[in-house]
């Protein structure tokens, strides 16, 4: 579904060139859940933005659904760390924004999307909140709205940049359970970014560990635990612990003294 070959990204920063990504090669299968994990500044967001077509890569080639990416695509949706809702729009019309922007739908098509918006909101437990304005909702509810918005056009690929990291622990766990369920139901390919090893282990088929400056692939870890997974009581606690430990090791390896002054910046 997604193919990256020798992808590199160099930014012209104020303090000279920043080599954000180097030689990234990755092949994400259809319906696969891949998580990018790594210290902040190692290029996770940049990689997502490249796949989304928000940024052309300095080198290498990116394909989505067999076509080279040249700009944002209709069948790829992006979800941000913050809900990014338009404050003057009601919940349901925020969810409908992508449909409205791309236009070209018949009245009937639009009505179908509207029904779908209501279904999605119900699916994430926001029935009855359709007419509310974003500021009337909690952070977790806002992020659920944002999730519905990214699902409205039935994307083939969902790119999610730390979507739950601004939420409290309980809401996070709830939302990642919902995301698992939604992915199993809707069959989408997901590339997910997180700082949380737990989240990565619970959600992913594969975890891609990146190292910073320049961002490179460190290791790709397969997670073979049956779904649905949870961090609570389950039959696979030892595997979860083992993989978490391994990921921990990979991530803390990167914490070399030479990196510290820059990291503190």
């Amino acid at each position: 579904m997604i193919r990256l070959d020798g992808v590199g990204q160099v930014f012209d920063g104020r303090a000279g060139e920043v080599r954000a990504l180097e030689e990234i090669g990755l092949h994400v299968q259809e319906n696969e859940f891949v998580t990018l994990i790594g210290r902040s500044g190692c290029g996770k967001s940049t990689l997502l933005r490249l796949i989304a077509g928000l940024l052309p890569p300095t080198s290498g080639r990116i394909e989505v659904a067999g076509e080279a990416v040249s700009g944002p695509r209709r069948d790829v949706s992006f979800m941000f760390q913050r809900p990014a809702l338009l404050p003057w729009r009601s919940v349901v019309s925020n969810v409908m924004l992508p449909v409205e922007i791309s236009g070209g739908d018949s009245e009937r098509g639009k009505a179908q999307y509207r029904d779908r918006a209501h279904e999605l909101l119900e699916l994430v437990g926001l029935k009855g909140f359709e007419r509310r304005l974003p500021h009337e909702l909690s952070g977790g509810m806002q992020q659920r709205v944002s999730l519905c918005r990214s699902l409205i056009r039935r994307p083939k690929v969902m790119l999610m940049d730390e979507p739950f990291s601004a939420l409290d622990a309980l809401t996070r766990t709830e939302l990642s359970a919902e995301l698992q369920r939604i992915q199993m139901e809707l069959a989408t390919t997901i590339v997910f970014v997180t700082h949380s090893i737990e989240e990565a282990v619970v959600l992913s088929d594969r975890v891609v560990v990146l190292t910073p400056r320049p961002g490179r692939l460190r290791e790709i870890v397969e997670i073979d635990i049956p779904r649905p997974r949870s961090l609570g009581q389950n039959a696979h606690l030892t595997e979860v612990a083992q993989i978490s430990g391994h990921l921990h090791g990979l991530l803390s390896e990167q914490e070399r003294p030479v990196d510290l002054p820059e990291a503190r910046r």
Partner: peptide, 26 residues
């Protein structure tokens, strides 16, 4: 206009006119 909202409209392939009327002006 917050950058994340501009980025959102970009990711939806919004035109400049849409970005202006649906986001910046509002």
């Amino acid at each position: 206009t917050p950058v994340e909202l501009v980025e959102l409209l970009k990711s939806l392939n919004a035109s400049k006119t849409q970005e202006f009327f649906k986001l910046r002006l509002r």
